[in-house]
Design a protein around this nucleic acid. Structure first.
Length: 401
DNA sequence: CGATTTTGACCGGCGC
DNA sequence: GCGCCGGTCAAAATCG
């Protein structure tokens, strides 16, 4: 019982402590446990006990790390298998181009595994995979597949394909009465247009937190539900982000990574028969391979009737595993979605164990959901100045690696 | 008075 | 080639 509690408290950072990197805490604990230094014999015995206990703890932690590593390796293999199957089954040229920028193997960023190369059945696709890797290098609110001056070589003289691969976007849907959701960044409006098929105007903003920041976002109310604000981010910040923005970025990047990890190569939508228990906030990430740019959609709206919203959105590909978080417990659950084959469920289990083990993800998701849920009151102005000092994005950005 | 928003013009991609 | 459409520009208006 006590040991179990210790493991939970130690979590992922205890190894450093037990490993001798910072033993001041242990020294304090030892000295407080044994306030009588005169009893040196008892002290020595207790210290030995403590040492053996910490060694045991260290072994357990190592085991945990090994387990996560093993899960990750298994996940990689299964991604590759699924990807290969999908490559064989879906040979639509257009989709091949766009799914390339959102390939499941993106998660293996910087991984020189030969399987990556082997998975590309053509030279062209190999380039797409290269571009795809950058797509997942989310940093802050950065979702560019490629920067403007870093285009991938145009292998097949296909300019349209290049354009499609050039950028990726992250779309966040949230219920908000305010004209903007608060994402922690400063934005300047530079245009507004009426978009076809939507009576609500679309507003264009660019980031003004740093000179020359290329990040832009589009804000538009959903034509299906005016209470839903659809915010689409594009580009990479060239400056540190405030905590709220970093949290948002972490969430979207993590969601994107998870989405891509279990990526569906179909553009079909989820059937309405999925089981989605009520929750404080339901988040659904989808990938839209049919969009002009690869687009990750993060749905942070609360379905009024327990069903997932936008399940009829034909643009959105089904996310195979909608995830759910119960905020008070900060517990993350991944709900196996409908119509799963055995392999996909296995992937979900692997992803679940791997990602729920990451405290950064849980914290980031919590922060992001909180900021969005609380957005209507604080987002009445587009020039929201961050309330807290900026922090380097590396401090809070969730890494998929 | 500087920063921001508004809004019509302009441009490029794309389909017919 | 032409028109539609999405995205951006930039001058004028507005705001604090």
């Amino acid at each position: 019982m006590e040991r179990h509690r210790e493991i939970k408290e130690v979590d992922f950072f205890s190894e450093r402590r037990t490993g001798g990197g910072d033993d001041s805490h242990d020294r304090r604990r030892c000295s407080s446990d044994h306030k009588d230094p005169s009893v040196s014999g008892v002290n020595l015995t207790t210290l030995q006990d403590e040492l053996s206990r910490l060694s045991e703890e260290n072994r357990r932690l190592k085991g945990m790390v090994e387990k996560v590593t093993k899960d990750y390796s298994a996940l990689k293999c299964q991604f590759f298998l699924v990807k290969q199957q999908n490559t064989k089954e879906n040979s639509q040229p257009k989709f091949t181009v766009e799914s390339g920028a959102a390939d499941p193997s993106d998660v293996e960023d910087r991984d020189p595994s030969p399987s990556l190369t082997n998975s590309a059945d053509t030279a062209s696709k190999g380039h797409q995979l290269t571009a795809a890797k950058r797509h997942l290098s989310f940093d802050g609110l950065s979702y560019d597949a490629l920067s403007e001056n870093d285009k991938i070589p145009n292998v097949a003289n296909d300019g349209a394909a290049e354009m499609r691969c050039r950028r990726a976007r992250v779309c966040v849907r949230a219920v908000s009465e305010a004209p903007l959701i608060s994402d922690g960044c400063q934005w300047r409006k530079y245009g507004q247009k009426m978009a076809k098929g939507n009576p609500c105007p679309r507003a264009y903003y660019r980031c003004t937190m740093a000179a020359g920041c290329p990040v832009r976002k589009q804000v538009q109310r959903s034509s299906e539900d005016r209470t839903i604000l659809v915010t689409t981010y594009e580009g990479s910040h060239n400056h540190p982000l405030p905590p709220a923005a970093a949290a948002m970025a972490s969430t979207t990047s993590a969601a994107a990574a998870m989405l891509l990890s279990g990526s569906s190569t179909s553009s079909e939508t989820l059937p309405a028969t999925g089981f989605y228990p009520p929750s404080y906030a339901t988040t659904m990430a989808t990938l839209s391979p049919a969009a002009p740019f690869p687009t990750i959609t993060l749905d942070l709206t609360q379905p009024p009737n327990g069903l997932m919203p936008f399940q009829h959105n034909r643009m959105a590909a089904a996310m195979p595993f909608p995830f759910q978080m119960s905020l008070p417990q900060k517990r993350l659950e991944f709900l196996p979605a409908v119509q799963f084959d055995h392999q996909q469920s296995s992937i979900v289990e692997t992803i679940t164990s791997a990602i729920t083990a990451d405290p950064n993800f849980t914290a980031s998701l919590t922060a992001a959901i909180s900021s969005i849920v609380a957005a209507p009151r604080i987002a009445n102005s587009s020039k929201g100045v961050p309330e807290s000092p900026q922090i380097p994005q590396s401090c809070t950005t969730f890494s998929t690696n």
